[in-house]
């Protein structure tokens, strides 16, 4: 680990000032500190922002505002989240371990970096995300956990978060703050596809601070769930995960939210499948057809071709379960 200075921000303006002088924001440290130990990251200064915004509050229009410093555990256990956004509680509990969730923050979770093993192998492997332009050893290497959607020649990494998949399905909005003011972004626009700049994970500006994540009011979210498929029963990243909510009226899909994890460089909102399903009869065939459409552009690598079928099956099964359609 490279030596660094450490400061704890007592308020937002102090955090922004420290960042302006080159500090990197530190949440629970469950990912960034690992990356520093592995020398993937070597910030000269850390700004601990866990003391800021630890509130979960209902908004006037019926949504929920979640402070960026809220721990994953606290969010998953919150009665409002459990009752009105079960997909989010389940997604969080499907990730990591209890100890890690106790430390990890909402803001930090959004900024997790990929688990690509070539990204982690600083000395021994090439990685365009670490050193732009040097090449990608994951292509042609071990890429079981890599992307099938939205990848580029430069990068086939996936975003590892479970929580973000639920947030993508819930139309969550990210609140940002910087020296030049505040702004909001839909979560689905926070993360980037790799393109030819895989070293850039998000559209955040330098020094910009995530202050909160807002969940809009959505009655559909009360009937939602998260299903994660992985290589062991717990403590593994998703091969494929599905966050879904569905409303069925008179046998027809009146509304639907669908997002996939483990398949792309960002949480993958399955807009194409949603569009196909709205207004359609809630049937196994319709769900499968929507899944097929969503995965139509999927491109397999040498180890992960199975994820295409796995994603289709998991989407279909989750929708069927939520809609009460027999598989």
């Amino acid at each position: 680990m490279t030596p660094f200075s450490f400061n704890r921000a007592t308020d937002q303006s102090e955090a922004l000032q420290l960042a302006e002088r080159g500090g990197r924001y530190l949440g629970g440290g469950t990912n960034l500190v690992d990356l520093m130990r592995e020398t993937v990251e070597h910030p000269a200064a850390l700004v601990d922002v866990t003391g800021l915004s630890r509130d979960i509050a209902e908004t006037p229009d019926g949504g929920v505002m979640i402070g960026a410093g809220v721990t994953n555990s606290a969010l998953a256990a919150h009665p409002t989240i459990r009752a009105r956004y079960p997909v989010l509680a389940r997604a969080i509990l499907a990730g990591a371990s209890a100890q890690i969730r106790n430390m990890a923050t909402v803001g930090g979770n959004l900024l997790q970096r990929t688990r690509c093993t070539y990204f982690y192998d600083v000395e021994g492997s090439r990685c365009n995300k670490r050193r732009p332009g040097e090449g990608c050893d994951a292509r042609g290497g071990f890429n079981r956990i890599h992307a099938i959607l939205g990848a580029s020649d430069a990068c086939v990494a996936t975003h590892p978060s479970d929580m973000c998949v639920a947030l993508a399905a819930l139309d969550a909005v990210v609140h940002l703050s910087s020296a030049s003011g505040t702004r909001t972004l839909p979560l689905t626009e926070l993360h980037r596809l790799p393109g030819d700049q895989p070293q850039i994970d998000t559209v955040l500006h330098p020094g910009e601070l995530i202050t909160a994540v807002e969940l809009p009011a959505a009655s559909i979210a009360a009937h939602s769930t998260y299903r994660k498929v992985r290589d062991r029963a717990s403590y593994a990243f998703a091969l494929v995960s599905v966050a879904a909510a569905i409303a069925v009226e008179d046998g027809r899909v009146s509304d639907v939210r669908l997002a996939l994890g483990g398949v792309a460089h960002k949480p993958w909102r399955a807009s194409r499948a949603e569009e196909m399903l709205r207004g359609k009869a809630a049937s196994l065939d319709a769900f499968r057809a929507a899944a097929e459409a969503e995965l139509a552009d999927a491109v397999p690598l040498n180890d992960n071709g199975f994820k295409i079928e796995l994603a289709k099956r998991t989407m279909t099964a989750v929708l069927a379960e939520l809609a009460g359609v027999d598989a």
Binding site: T117, G124, F142, R232, A233
Partner: peptide
């Protein structure tokens, strides 16, 4: 080269397994 020299990516059974 060994690419998963870590208990995060080299899987051994967890309690739930």
């Amino acid at each position: 080269r060994i690419m998963n020299p870590s208990l995060a990516e080299y899987h051994v059974p967890v309690h739930m397994d």
